[in-house]
Simulated assay, not measured.
Amino acid sequence: MTHIDARDLADRYAAVWNEADPDLRRKAVQDLWAPDGVHVLQPPQEMRAEALRLGFADAALVARGHDELEARVARSYEEFVATGQFTFRAAGDSSAALEDVVTFRWEAVAVESGEAAGGGLEFVTVGEDGRIIRDYQFPAL
């Protein structure tokens, strides 16, 4: 396993969600995640509660492979960044690496105020090539 620079990974991770150019965003997704990489999002509490009410025990949202990951990132970009409401950034000095695991916090920053309006915790496993194999996202408001 090569050395993982957790802060660099966290910064590149946050940057991909802010990328306006679709071609650069696609390249960033391919550079960040392995071809068969998986992104698992724990949805907000209200969405999980509704899924449970409907009889779904697992309300996690999953994107697999570069095409789905790119669509997930593009959707987030369109909803939050392109509207001029938010940008994303790695939060402070919260990143850490241990063998093939990296954790870090990120923030959604309100463009108008410059203040963090939300964020979350990322827990990722990284392959030999330094790209993300599994990505678990825990948003927090």
Rank of each mutant, 00 (worst) to 15 (best):
Gln30His: 10
Glu19Val: 05
Ser94Lys: 05
Gly127Trp: 02
Arg131Met: 11
Arg131Leu: 04
Ala82Thr: 05
Arg72Asp: 09
Tyr136Trp: 13
Ala71Asp: 12
Asp36Cys: 01
Ala108Cys: 09
Gln45Gly: 04
Gly130Ala: 09
Glu68Leu: 04
Arg72Leu: 11
Ala116Phe: 06
Val126Phe: 03
Thr87Gly: 11
Arg134Glu: 15
Val62Pro: 04
Pro22Asp: 15
Ala14Arg: 07
Pro44Ala: 12
Leu141Ala: 07
Arg75Gly: 15
Pro44Ile: 07
Val101Thr: 15
Ala71Met: 07
Leu9Cys: 09
Trp17Gly: 01
Glu128Asn: 15
Ala97His: 09
Asp5Ser: 13
Ser95Cys: 06
Met1Pro: 15
Ala63Asp: 07
Val38Gln: 12
Arg7Gly: 09
Val38Trp: 04
Phe56Gln: 08
His3Ile: 10
Arg75Val: 07
Leu54Trp: 02
Ala82Cys: 12
Asp11Ile: 09
Ala71Leu: 10
Arg64Asp: 01
Asp31Gly: 11
Ile4Trp: 12
Arg89Ile: 01
Leu121Asp: 01
Ala63Trp: 06
Thr87Tyr: 02
Leu121Ser: 03
Tyr77Ser: 01
Leu24Gln: 14
Ala15Lys: 12
Gln42Arg: 05
Ala90Phe: 02
Glu78Trp: 06
Arg89Leu: 00
Trp106Tyr: 12
Leu98Cys: 13
Tyr77Glu: 13
Ala96Leu: 14
Gln85Phe: 01
Pro22His: 04
Glu107His: 07
Glu99Pro: 00
Trp17Phe: 14
Ala28His: 03
Gly118Pro: 03
Ser94His: 05
Lys27Tyr: 00
Met47Cys: 03
Val102Gly: 03
Glu112Lys: 15
Glu68Ile: 01
Val124Asp: 07
